[in-house]
Design a protein around this nucleic acid. Structure first.
Length: 434
RNA sequence: GCCGCGGUGGUGUAGCCCGGUCGAGCAUGGGGGCCUGUCACGCCCCAGACCCGAGUUCAAAUCCCGGCCGCGGCGCCA
């Protein structure tokens, strides 16, 4: 430790059993209370909070003065004696013998303790301080569990984790708008999805997945869209979309189980009960969804994607998780495989939660010739996909996959309705900092 | 991008409709004082704000216009 002080215990390790032991805490000054002859310091570290206390009669006048000089959020080393004490929160506290100011803080711009709430926008402007609050702490600890659960689940199912380039050459993929970047003497683009790469990789590894950023230069200004998102993408040879939905059944189940097991404290901090998911997740077809809308008298455009009005109406009937399958081919990207004998529908699905789309996937077209036709019929020029189409000449297996928005899933798990709550440093049309 | 609403101390809000009583209220945070078991500690004192610009008016936090920003909804959305 270059600053010369070694931590002996975390806050959570100060228990009545330690009574009498000498301890050194390292952490942040969360809160202080001055009772005149007694001064309490609440010390926060990655494990939680612990109370440190000094009595005027027991410490040197110099230390006594110093104790009231520390500002909240300063980094302190506190040396003292652990004491079992019925009055202390958690039944134990640290009697202060020595305190060292390791790094001072100015008055924090927002309240970390939680007495006065700040608007999301203000919190994001001060995100690093905001992240010290219990709620963001809970959200991002859950996120870590989710990412870890997804990785182990997919690896156990034969997928390997891959990393594909985010700087790409062509802007002609259709769909969402891309951000352009200067690439030496050329223009390049930020990838909106690893779609093409992951499909190609099934011909080399069969099963691949990636957890990586995707960039969308869209006008979207909603509580569930951002310009930079983290996508969980998976793609598997010799699977069809039904297999992929079953894979997602297992994935969601695993994630929920992991969070329930590992994040009890965090769920409580968010005021959430243990999470539940029943698998298999119900699957309804697009046409069935349309019938529901008709029955409810909700207008919708024929063979088009659903808008918010339609999805909200559907979610009144279909709560929690559900799949909408067999979408109109025209409303889906060119690589979605049309249904055999019914080419106006394709082997595709969206994983929904309420009216929020969490993931979408499909069986992909693995015939190069058909793929070209599909590009043309969607108004795309097959020539711009030459490098992609090339690999369809060298043994491209039938394959399927999905793309899942990590933050969307996290919204569902944490019960947040603004995606910015569950992304540490969100990027949207206006926000580029911090 | 469109529609609606909003912008008041560090933070969160009251006041705005119905202009003057605002020398702008409250809470929290901050400074000072008192207090030996607090855990939203308590009590006393102090400091701290009307988004920017143009306009109406004797007078603007309050009304009008523009800009920027925010909130909600919709649209856009491999």
């Amino acid at each position: 430790m270059t600053f010369g002080i070694k931590r002996t215990h975390l806050a959570s390790e100060i228990t009545p059993a330690l009574d009498g032991s000498q301890v050194t805490l390292l952490g942040w000054l969360h809160e202080k209370r001055d009772l005149g002859g007694l001064r309490f310091l609440l010390i926060r570290d990655r494990s939680g909070l612990v109370q440190a206390v000094a009595a005027k009669k027991e410490v040197s006048p110099e230390l006594w003065e110093e104790l009231s000089s520390f500002k909240r959020e300063s980094v302190l080393a506190v040396k003292g004696i652990a004491k079992a004490s019925p009055q202390a929160p958690g039944g134990a506290e640290v009697r202060i013998r020595e305190v060292l100011l390791i790094s001072p803080s100015e008055d924090p711009p927002i309240d970390v303790v939680g007495k006065t709430s700040a608007d999301l926008d203000t919190r994001l402007d001060n995100r690093i301080v905001d992240l010290r609050r219990v709620e963001p702490q809970a959200i991002f600890r859950i996120q870590s569990t989710v990412a870890s659960a997804i990785r182990s689940y997919l690896r156990e199912n034969g997928f390997i984790e891959v990393f594909t380039p985010k700087i790409i050459a062509t802007a002609t993929e259709g769909g969402a708008s891309l951000f352009s970047v200067f690439y030496y003497d050329r223009i390049a683009y930020l990838s909106q999805s690893p779609q093409l790469y992951k499909e190609q990789l099934t011909s080399a590894f069969e099963r691949v997945f990636e957890i990586a950023p995707a960039f969308r230069a869209e006008e979207s200004d909603t509580q569930r869209h951002l310009s930079e998102i983290t996508m969980v993408d998976a793609e598997a040879a010799f699977m069809d979309y039904q297999d992929v939905m079953s894979l997602l059944d297992g994935l969601v189940e695993r994630v929920v189980k992991a969070v329930n097991e590992e994040n009890r404290r965090e769920l409580r901090a968010l005021g959430r009960e243990a999470l539940e998911v029943k698998v298999p997740i119900p699957r309804i077809t697009y046409d069935e969804a349309v019938s529901i809308l008709d029955r409810k008298g909700v207008e919708h455009e024929k063979d088009a994607d659903f808008g918010t009005v339609q999805l909200k109406a559907l979610s009144e009937e279909l709560r929690d998780f559900y799949f909408i399958t067999d979408w109109p081919t025209a409303a889906r990207p060119f690589y979605a495989k049309p249904l055999e004998g019914r080419p106006e529908r394709c082997e595709s699905f969206d994983l929904m939660y309420g009216w929020i789309e969490l993931a979408s996937g499909a069986t992909r077209v693995n015939d190069g010739k058909l793929l070209k036709e599909r590009m043309s019929s969607q108004g795309l020029n097959p020539d711009s996909f030459k490098t992609h189409l090339k690999w369809f000449n060298y043994g491209m297996p039938p394959h399927s996959g999905f793309g899942l928005g990590l933050a969307r899933l996290l919204m569902v798990l944490t019960g947040k309705d603004n995606i910015r709550e569950v992304v540490m440093f969100p990027r949207d049309k206006r926000r580029l900092e911090p």
